[in-house]
Amino acid sequence: MRAALSILKKDLRMEFRSKDSILSMWIFSLLIFVIFNFTFEVSRLVMLEIAPGLLWVAFIFSGMFGLNHAFAVEKENGNLRSMALMPVDGGQVYLGKFMSVTLIMLLFESLIFPIFIIFYDLQLSFQMFLLIPVILAGTIGFTSLGTILSAVAVHTRDQQILLSLLLWPLVSPIIIWSVNLTGMVIGGDITQGFYPLLTRVIAFDVIFFAVSFMLFEFILED
């Protein structure tokens, strides 16, 4: 655990040093909301239907951005190879990178979410707190897979294309379910299906995390 925390600390240090990446991500999300809010003249009802999807589009973009950034620094001076040389299990390296990528994505999300509330003029009800587990579960699903696949992609030349090719098919169920869950909360429509679906997302998270944790050792090798 010590090694994972060292990696986390190092990553957060670097991330907060280059604040421009956080800022540009935030502005980008703002843009998504502005464009969709003002280009389509649709009723509020239709807007509320689309809103959860837009929110997750912004989240996923910020996540992709964060992943690329987190692994670009491991590539710059051969650092990923250095990680293979360290007296540390691959799982620890995975855990460290996973924690930093997840925390940074959650930070992005917490900056994006208030804009979302304002743009779509959502009522802050007590029920909104249900978005916390929904966003956490969706985010962890995305980052647990994204972390290992970024490491795979760093070994190849066209890393970003490969990353998307690998990532999307695997992660899309989780994102779709998270959009559905978010829609239920925002629409004030917590049906019977809510908790089973949330549980399903969490189950996928656990599987993705556990498999990645065990496989990461082999990724670090040549």
Binding site: K10, M14, R17, S18, V73, E76, N77, G78, N79, R81, S82, L85, M86, P87, V88
Partner: peptide, 16 residues
């Protein structure tokens, strides 16, 4: 691994 060190053209350092 903890007994080993490598120096090569890859410097294994973070610029930031």
């Amino acid at each position: 691994k903890s007994k080993l060190a490598v120096i090569s053209h890859e410097v294994f350092l973070y610029n930031n």
